[in-house]
Simulated assay, not measured.
Amino acid sequence: MSAPEAVHADNAETDDLADRWKPVRDLPPSAKLVAKVLDYNETLTQSELAEETLLPPRTVRYALSRLEDADVVDSRFSFADARKRLYSLSI
């Protein structure tokens, strides 16, 4: 691959990454932080997200609701504890 082709491939990869995060771009900072933590961890509960982000549980709940409204987070019930939901990034 020539140098111009390599640069073009890098730019295309960067554009794909930017497009991936486009639905999150206009959300509050707390939602962006929760999304980024979910990007690094496959699946977390709300309490685990609060621990990882150092955000209050109420703020995490708000962030998750905004992320769910934007269709960038999936949630399902935990098989280990049906009272808890597991969240994962869907973008």
Rank of each mutant, 00 (worst) to 15 (best):
M1E: 09
M1L: 08
S2F: 06
S2I: 04
S2R: 08
P4K: 08
E5S: 11
E5F: 15
E5V: 11
E5C: 00
A6W: 12
V7L: 14
H8R: 12
A9G: 04
D10G: 09
N11G: 00
A12L: 14
A12M: 10
E13N: 09
D15I: 09
D16R: 08
D16K: 06
L17S: 13
L17P: 00
L17M: 10
L17D: 05
L17E: 11
D19Y: 12
D19H: 13
R20H: 00
W21P: 01
W21G: 00
K22G: 00
K22T: 14
P23Y: 10
V24C: 01
V24W: 03
R25Q: 14
R25F: 02
D26A: 13
D26Q: 07
L27Q: 06
P28N: 07
P28R: 08
P29R: 05
S30T: 11
S30V: 05
S30F: 01
S30K: 00
A31K: 01
A31P: 02
K32I: 04
K32W: 00
L33N: 03
L33Y: 05
L33C: 09
L33M: 11
V34N: 01
A35P: 01
A35H: 10
V37R: 06
V37N: 00
L38T: 03
L38G: 06
L38A: 04
D39F: 15
D39L: 11
Y40N: 04
E42L: 14
E42G: 12
T43D: 01
L44E: 01
L44Q: 08
L44M: 13
T45F: 01
Q46F: 11
Q46M: 14
S47L: 15
A50I: 05
E51W: 05
T53P: 01
T53K: 03
T53V: 04
T53D: 08
L55T: 07
L55E: 10
L55Q: 10
P56Q: 11
P57Q: 13
P57Y: 02
R58C: 04
R58K: 12
V60N: 01
V60H: 06
V60Q: 03
R61A: 14
R61D: 15
R61W: 15
Y62Q: 15
A63H: 09
A63Y: 10
S65V: 04
S65R: 15
R66I: 06
R66N: 08
R66G: 01
L67S: 02
L67I: 10
L67E: 02
E68K: 14
E68S: 12
D69K: 13
D69G: 05
A70T: 07
A70E: 02
A70M: 04
D71L: 12
V72W: 09
V72H: 06
V72S: 10
V73H: 10
V73G: 03
V73I: 14
V73D: 03
D74I: 07
S75A: 07
R76Y: 12
F77Q: 11
S78R: 07
S78Y: 03
F79K: 00
F79H: 00
D81H: 07
D81P: 01
D81C: 01
R83H: 09
R83E: 05
R83W: 00
R85N: 06
R85Q: 07
L86N: 03
L86D: 02
L86I: 04
S88Q: 13
L89D: 07
L89W: 11
L89N: 10
S90A: 12
S90C: 08
S90D: 12
S90M: 07
I91S: 00
I91Y: 13
